[in-house]
Nucleic acid binder design. Structure first.
Lengths: 197, 197
DNA sequence: GGACGCTATGGCACCGAGTGTCACCGGGCA
DNA sequence: TGCCCGGTGACACTCGGTGCCATAGCGTCC
């Protein structure tokens, strides 16, 4: 196998993913049972859980690859660049989708940011992202990755990215633009809030 | 009733909470069944779920009251104060526990920040906090509470608070101190990261 | 070509979190 | 005494997730 069977596995995985996304956007995430997704994908319930550990996982494509790519991008950033700028650039690039993939991304992100069960699940996923970013910051500052500043920068920048995603979903602008806006606010210490009034 | 029975209800609720906390700290959260907690509290499994909608909820005391108090504190802040400072002050005050309650707080926070299932659950809880903070920021800046800056400030300050809690758990300092450190970093745009190197 | 092994899959039984329902008990109240 | 009502227990059921075993397809090696 490894060739044909591997492809077949990828194909069924993609079928499941497509079926799941369609059902979840049509109705509330929680009201769709794993059985229904399996039926729609033409496989058994048991097989569904062999491809995705969790019902929620079917919404996040191959998120691990995403994290790995982010890590590579961070490792490849220029040390002459400010740390926050390097993180922003990495976030922008890892989310640089082709125009034809944007509708799918919107669909996914809408689910993840809207459905409570998926919001909860996302925390576990984001922990990986935070770890990677914190390590990058620590590498740049010489701090322990578990100390306050690297951790804080990681969670704060992720907050910025998430907020950027939210405004991108609502509005019509580009994701890169919203990411830069959010990171600028963060890096500037929220200039609009500085002076009272 | 309403007097005697209400007290009794509070009492059983407290018993459940205590039993849950003890069991969850003794073993992994997920390996403790709701049946066990119910048995330890001397009630039935069904009654457990009448007091707490979720196994995870037994860890968070009356969190809603916490959020309400935070909202009041934010409403009562001085408008001459910078916005971030007012949020920091509110976070500090809402988490100003008596010395004798600190061990319990540590126990709770360790669970919430450590156990994956509770981490996931926390996202839903934090959404309330974010809403309250975003509304406060919007009131101060005149923005729409759903626009980027209020949302971003809310999630970023919560990230600061969470990180402060994490370092507080590990170290020996005071929580207020760690909160101020984190908020100072945030308000200053992470001064240590500004210039490369 | 046949035996072997690996992998994907299906079916089944099981556990645990929640939930709806009904029946019961106790205490306040007319 | 009889009624009402809130807290409780018992039971059955749904659904997410897992372990186990059996089977089918396909590639490999003798």
């Amino acid at each position: 196998m490894t060739e044909a069977a591997g492809d077949a596995r990828e194909a069924t995985r993609a079928r499941i993913e497509a079926a799941a996304l369609e059902l979840f956007t049509g109705r509330d995430f929680e009201t769709v049972t794993a059985d229904e997704v399996a039926d729609a994908a033409g496989i058994s319930r048991r097989t569904f859980f062999r491809h995705f550990a969790t019902k929620a996982d079917a919404v996040w494509g191959d998120f691990h690859a995403h994290v790995v790519r982010l890590e590579e991008l961070l490792a490849g950033t220029d040390d002459a660049q400010p740390v926050l700028a390097s993180i922003c650039a990495a976030y922008v690039e890892v989310n640089d989708y082709a125009a034809e993939d944007l509708p799918l991304l919107r669909q996914r992100m809408r689910l993840i940011l809207t459905e409570p069960a998926l919001q909860a699940h996302s925390q576990v996923r984001y922990a990986d992202v935070d770890r990677v970013v914190a390590e990058h910051v620590a590498r740049r500052t010489g701090d322990d990755p578990h100390s306050l500043v690297p951790r804080l920068v990681a969670t704060a920048t992720r907050a910025a990215a998430t907020t950027a995603f939210e405004t991108w979903l609502i509005g019509e602008g580009s994701l890169a633009e919203d990411l830069h806006t959010a990171f600028d606010q963060l890096a500037g210490g929220f200039p609009g809030l500085r002076r009272p009034d």
